[in-house]
């Protein structure tokens, strides 16, 4: 095993380093990373942000929203926790979690935590979860990553992962809410998250070689982060298809929008209601097909199609706000 330090608390840069080590830079042995993030919400690969996250709150509080390439549900991470990753260039043919998790359980037990693997994907202590684990596989490599709650702000986690209700139907994977616990409860009261990470690393990486990224590695990792992990298109464009119904009170009456959104773009927008308009609902549908489901893009598309003001006393900006819920991460 070779220890690699990303030197970054940006989740996208750490995902990019995993991808780089899995697909481009073979170190000749499995790689281990132990990393932290600034406050971040990580969606699973096939989840809908609108169903999992209070996006307006995340934006107001400056919490990053990103999509993991691995499966499972949404987690909240901050500097009170740690993530571990194993990049295995010679994985078993079938899916396995135990071989990546066992060294972590062993290290934590040696540190006094009554840690146990629940037999599926999680680590628990005293019956409560402190670590979720997920994987992805590309040609010839498996990437396993797990979270570790040490002193994470659990009330903030709860608030940020409780979105406002929308009439939204998605085929995506839904998160499962578990009873969680911070590992600091099992440690000496003066132990900090930093000290916990240092001690865990000493145990996990005992006897490991250390690979230091050079400038070329770092440049490539930053490029992968920006191309494959950052931005609106990753969070919303890579989402499962969904159907959404929104009703809004406009100046001239009520309007209901039934939307079909695929890969982040509007595939259909049925409009009905008792508003006054100079155009048929078909014109709105035609203007919006193929448009990214994002307030600014919807507004631009309406203006381009000459629909600014086509509904009585309703400008394009107001109509766009009615069609797209106030969405912080956009």
């Amino acid at each position: 095993m070779i220890l690699v330090d990303s030197g970054s608390c940006d989740a996208c840069e750490n995902f990019a380093l995993e991808a780089y080590l899995a697909g481009e830079r073979d170190l000749g042995d499995a790689a281990l990373m132990l990393w932290q993030t600034e406050p971040t919400l990580m969606l699973g690969r096939y989840q809908d942000a609108r169903l999992e996250i209070d996006l307006a709150r995340a934006q107001a509080e400056g919490v990053a929203v990103v999509r993991r390439p691995s499966g499972g549900g949404t987690i909240y991470t901050d500097r009170g926790g740690w993530q571990f990753s194993v990049i295995d260039r010679a994985p078993d043919a079938g899916i396995r979690f135990d071989k990546y998790i066992a060294p972590v359980v062993e290290a934590l037990r040696a540190m006094g935590v009554p840690a146990a693997f629940n037999g599926r994907n999680d680590l628990v202590a005293g019956g409560r979860k402190f670590s979720g684990n997920a994987q992805y596989r590309i040609a010839g490599a498996a990437v396993h990553h797990g979270s570790l709650l040490f002193s994470t702000d659990l009330s903030r986690m709860e608030a940020l992962t409780t979105p406002p209700r929308e009439k939204l139907r998605s085929k995506g994977i839904r998160s499962v809410r578990d009873r969680v616990v911070n590992l600091c409860q099992f440690m000496a009261p003066d132990m900090t998250a930093e000290a916990f990470g240092r001690e865990l690393l000493l145990r996990l990486a005992a006897g490991c070689a250390h690979y230091a990224l050079d400038d070329a590695d770092r440049a490539r990792v930053r490029a992968i982060a920006s191309q494959r992990f950052s931005g609106w298109a990753r969070v919303f464009g890579d989402a499962p298809p969904f159907e959404l119904e929104r009703t809004a009170k406009l100046a001239g009456g009520w309007a209901t929008f039934r939307l079909d959104v695929r890969r982040g773009r509007i595939a259909r927008c049925d409009v009905s209601g008792d508003f006054f308009a100079t155009v048929g609902a078909d014109a709105i549908d035609a203007a919006l097909r193929g448009c990214p489901y994002r307030e600014a893009d919807v507004c631009d598309a309406l203006v381009r199609a000459g629909l600014d003001g086509a509904i009585y006393r309703v400008g394009a900006a107001e109509l766009a706000r009615a069609i797209v819920p106030g969405n912080g991460a956009e």
Binding site: G44, R45, Y46, P69, S70, G71, G72, I95, R120, N121, G132, N133, A134, Q135, Y136, R137, I138, A139, I173
Partner: peptide, 18 residues
């Protein structure tokens, strides 16, 4: 042969199937 055809998720694992 060997090119990724689709992505599938099962039990928190996402695989590219070739």
């Amino acid at each position: 042969k060997g090119e990724a055809l689709f992505e599938v998720e099962t039990e928190k694992v996402v695989c590219q199937v070739e």
